[in-house]
Amino acid sequence: MKSHHGAEPSKLKVIGIPEGLMIFEQKQLWKKFFESLGCHAVCSGHTTKRIMNSGIELCCNETCLPVKAFTGHAASLCGKADCIFIPRYSSVCSHEKSCPKFCGLPDEVRISLNNKTKFLEIDIDFNRDSKKTQKSLDLLAGELGRSPKTVRDAFDSIVKPGLAAEVSPNRSCSYEPGAPVLAVLGHPYMIFDRLLSMNLIGKLQDAGYRVMTPYDVRRSVRRKNVAPFLSDSFFETGLDMLGGAQALVNLPELAGMVYLSSFACGIDSLVLEIIEHKIRNGRRIPFLKITIDEHSGEAGFDTRIEAFLDMLPNTESIRREKIV
């Protein structure tokens, strides 16, 4: 192992940040973190067809679309950066956990990319073992040729407060009083990614709805709205969806809910069921589940949305308003 008090300057100047999965919401944090350490950070940008296709090719077939997209993002950074940064998110705060796929993600991507490039990792596991984070930060310090203290301080001041941010960077800023609301639920890296979501949010807005997501609700409110579980921790996105849905369901303007899920997503299968159970036993609002994978065609997708919108009670009035 390298000496931690790196007097030697590091050759890792340009850090690649793949914009997918858990980094999707937090890329600004990581970018700032690396820049504060004197590195240059390049992000992979929006998901493109090309990124998607390379991810599909590199990944094991059974995995979900977002993991494939992520791998594509990482691949797109090969050659553009000295190394690729992939954090290992197991949990961002106590009593919460991430999808198990995040726990092996750095290894999975490294192997899928055939060790073609260098990778940097950080362990984030605040529910079970926050010492792991410290250890991984020290290793990173060695790699970057910075002192462990500098790196720890940068992490504590820049990244840590944003891991469980109260206000999401993806909150919608549009507000139209009176417009009927559709709630869109799903992982942020699905619903806010134009390509993966086939521009779901844009399409609903074009149809005259105000779209709200759980990420428009403050995190503390999302957490307050969640019923207790048997186990002492629950999936972070699950809590966001359940708490968010619970907060949104009480909006008088709410016309319906759409849950966008990736085919074969293990977390969604569970969370969806709990939300549907709630809806069955509470205010029965129209609910649409859409599952997509790499074979989903946009035409079929659009048809399903249209059919759903047609079914909503106040569609007529919006349509009329739009015409006048």
């Binding site: 579980f229 186990s231 921790s233 709990i274 159970h277």
Partner: peptide
């Protein structure tokens, strides 16, 4: 029972009870 692991097994119990109650 339930486990405290990272996976869905830790929530089988919640879901089983919901479904059986429904």
């Amino acid at each position: 029972g339930n486990s405290r692991g990272q996976c869905r097994l830790s929530h089988y119990g919640d879901l089983l009870q919901n479904i059986l109650h429904d």
